[in-house]
Amino acid sequence: MARLSMVEAINVTLHELMARDERIVVLGEDVGKDGGVFRATVGLLDKFGPMRVIDTPLAESCIVGSAIGMAVYGMRPVAEIQFEGFMFKAYDQVYSHASRLRRRSQGVYGVPLVIRAPYGAGVRALEHHSDAPEALFAHVPGLKVVIPATPSDAKGLLTSSIEDPDTVIFLEPKRLYRLFKEEVPEGDYRVPLGEARVVQEGDDATIVTYGGMVSVCERAAQHVASEGVSAEVIDLRTVWPFDIDAITKSVTKTGRLIICHEAPRSLGVGAEIAAQVAEKCLLSLQAPIVRVTGNDVIPPLSKLEEYNYPDSEQVVRAIHETVQF
C-alpha cells in the first residue's frame, strides 16, 4: 500500500489499467505533454505514447464525440474535460448520443466511455471552474454519475467505471485532489458502482452526502457525538443510480434524514433522494427532511466562495433541527 492523494491515486490507476488493457485510450486538452492541468495524467504519454495518450485540439464536443466513436469501435476511451464548466460544449454528445446509443442500436452498440472532469468549488478558481453540475448528468436517462470522496475510492471507482459497459460521468472533487493522503490498495482494486459506503454508523439521524461534502458531514457527526447524538453518514459514491437500499435501510433505522451537497439546492440530487424516501419509507420519518446545500446561484468567485459552500456548522444545525423536531 502506498500513501496517495486523490489525484495521485487517479494517476496510478490510469497507469495500471492502461498497462493491462490496451483498449484504454486517454484523450483531452493538455493531458499528454503537460500531464493534465491537475497532473492527473502525468507520465502516461511517456509510458504509452501519443497513439494512446492524445493531446487534442481545444474542442470538447469532438473529444467526447470521438470517444463515443472509439468506444463503439471496441476501445475503452477515458476522456478528460479540463473543468466541469466546459462539459457543456460536449453536452449534445453526452445527452443525445453517449447515453442513447445502446438503445438506439437495440443493444448492438454500447458506449463504454468514462468522462473524467475535476468538479466543484473550494479552490478559489475563475468563473466556470467551480460548478457542481452532477444533477444535469444524473438527470439524463442512460448515464451513470460517480463522485469519489477518498483516494482509495477514486481508485476503486475509476477502475469499475472504466470496466463498466456503459458511459460513466466521473466527477473528481478538485478541492480533495491534494487535501489529504491515505493508504490506497495496490494492484487490482474495485469499488462496485451503485454501492454506498457507510462512513460512520449512527442511530439518531442519517446524513446522505458525497464528494467534497463527506468530510464536512463527518466532522459534523463527530461534533454532535460529543452531545450524545449519533448520526450515520452515508457517502453515495455513485450519485446515480444511487444505492437506494442503503438510504432506506438507514432512514428506517434513524427516522431522520439530512441531505448535503454543494450543488444548487433545487431540483438536484437531494431532491431525488427526498422524493425516493417519501415514496419508500415516509412513515419511518419522525421529522421533515432537511437539505444542506449550495444556493441556486452561480458559484461565487473567491471573495464569497466559502459562503456558498456548506460547512460543518450548517450540518450540525441541521442535525439539531431534525433531532429536536
Binding site: N295, V297, L304
Partner: peptide, 26 residues
C-alpha cells in the same frame, strides 16, 4: 468586501421566491 448575500444579486431581473428564501436563510 461584498456582503455574502451579494451572490443573490443579478441572478434574475426580479428575485424569485426561492432565492428570497435562500437569502433570508443566509
Amino acid at each position: 468586501l461584498p456582503h455574502p448575500t451579494e451572490m443573490f444579486d443579478h441572478m434574475y431581473a426580479e428575485m424569485p421566491w426561492h432565492l428570497l428564501e435562500q437569502k433570508d436563510r443566509m
